[in-house]
């Protein structure tokens, strides 16, 4: 657990883990099957009146 170890960790694996997370987020957002769900969600705020 030295300083050099943490520097190595953040400079190498830190990069890969962020790219990996970015990949997951983009795949989730752009997955064709999710389109309908997102469209519905975007319009959902117009149906929430004070009385349910």
């Amino acid at each position: 657990m030295t300083h050099d170890f943490f520097v190595m960790l953040s400079k190498s694996w830190g990069l890969f883990y962020l790219i990996f997370l970015f990949g997951i987020a983009v795949a989730y957002a752009l997955w064709p099957a999710n389109k309908e769900k997102f469209d519905r969600a975007a319009k959902s705020i117009f149906h929430d009146q004070d009385e349910k």
Binding site: A29, F38, F46
Partner: peptide, 28 residues
Amino acid sequence: YYYLPKAAGRPIFSYRMSIISFWGITFM
């Protein structure tokens, strides 16, 4: 993301972009 589309009467331009920018902002 709630009050602006609501007041404009239009859904958010790109829901997908809102998700990508969410994770971008959160992690970076």
